[in-house]
Design a protein around this nucleic acid. Structure first.
Length: 206
DNA sequence: TCGACGATCATCT
DNA sequence: GATGATCGTCGAG
């Protein structure tokens, strides 16, 4: 069961790019009404904070919405996108920095039936339909703004140790959906497990 | 107070 | 590949 023990604070007190890479293969555990849903992370993106035009903390931007981005590493930042979907981020680094890692895709380990029910899709599920995308991952695990700012070291949403990937199994590429971000749009801050079928859109070449 | 927009997804052709 | 859904947030006025 040690694979499901929480990652320590020190794991998150590092640059977002490092944390994003090393989160691959780890477990994201959601406690939901006595049930435990376990997923294994296969795709992440780093957002660097003030210097990163794609980041909600770009240029030190700070509002009621993104306040939890400025917590110490190891907390959740959850926001609503396109009025419909939620995105789950892991805050990294020291307090007041504003860097984070977006959790983009995961595969089910346990609790798959509940996740499928949470997704409310009647048709047969394809490879990326369960949690192969940031909005889908949140829906499968019932993550919404109520979990904004919670600690990921304990409680109803936890990041656990799992088995980190060997470096040669990690693919890097540009981030998704941030064409507005100028030069930052091309930075290779998206990381995924090579060849994993759950990985979302513009699939990195394996 | 108002208008524009977005770290997406499902469905359609 | 294209498009509509849908609304909280933010900056401009």
């Amino acid at each position: 069961m040690s694979r499901l023990s929480a990652l320590p604070r020190s794991f998150f007190l590092r640059p977002a790019e490092t944390v994003a890479r090393e989160l691959l293969g780890r477990y994201l555990v959601r406690r939901l009404g006595g049930e435990r849903l376990v997923t294994r992370l296969v795709e992440t993106e780093a957002y660097l904070g003030a210097p990163d035009r794609a980041s909600h903390a770009w240029s030190g931007r700070r509002t009621a919405r993104n306040e939890s981005l400025y917590l110490i590493g190891g907390h959740a930042y959850v926001y609503l996108i396109y009025g419909i979907h939620h995105c789950l981020n892991v805050v990294t680094g020291a307090r007041e920095v504003g860097s984070a890692v977006l959790l983009r895709a995961a595969e089910a380990v346990t609790g798959e039936l509940r996740m499928k029910a949470n997704r409310r899709l009647d048709r047969a599920l394809g490879p990326t339909d369960l949690a192969g995308g940031p909005g889908k991952l949140c829906q499968a695990l019932a993550v919404d703004r109520r979990l904004d700012g919670v600690s990921l070291l304990r409680g109803e949403l936890i990041l656990a140790r799992g088995e980190p990937l060997d470096a040669e199994r990690v693919v890097a590429g540009p981030r998704i959906g941030i064409d507005y971000a100028g030069e930052a749009a091309g930075w290779p801050l998206r990381f995924a497990e090579m060849g994993n079928p759950e990985v979302s859109r513009p699939r990195p070449l394996a």
